[in-house]
Design a protein around this nucleic acid. Sequence first.
DNA 1: AAAGTGATCATG
DNA 2: ATGATCACTTTG
Length: 175
Amino acid sequence: MVKRLNFEFYNNHALEVAPLLLGKILVRRFDDGKEIRLRITETEAYCGESDTACHAKAGRTNRTKPLYDKGGTVYVYLCYGIHNLINVVTGEKDDPQAVLIRGVEGFSGPGRLTRALSIDRSFNEDDFSTSHRIWIEDDGFVPKYKTTPRIGIDYATEPYKSAPWRFVLEGEAEK
DNA sequence: AAAGTGATCATG
DNA sequence: ATGATCACTTTG
């Protein structure tokens, strides 16, 4: 039984949604009707303005605006001038949390998976629960996973810097 | 180990 | 207008 994740799923706390997204299937549908499906293997949670690793730490800006939108909103931004990173906004509107999709089956690294799926900044502010070109499905797979601190956030301060908010599917390559 | 890359945000 | 800072990847 495959079902598309809906608003109700995304309307929860990032720390709850992040591990649940493991094992789910990221679907990218192209204009010609072709679809690519890849199982999500790695996620990270970013939790609000108090989380010094979260982009929303500096408050609402033009860039972070999608984080404040309702659960299920797509947040894509350019990192290091090269890579588009894709996040799933979670939680209530005006509560800036998101889950970064860091890896999918066959592609490890958040920049490589967006390149593989041709995801760019035009996807920003799309909606995972209604979009026709990007969504996530549940096929019943129950994830076994482990947690580690998040990657690439040396600029953050404790306790957020070492909070175990990275979620990796059991059996995936560890860094 | 280090560069490449460019939007974004805070300064002036 | 300029400069610092990056949720990374690749190359050596």
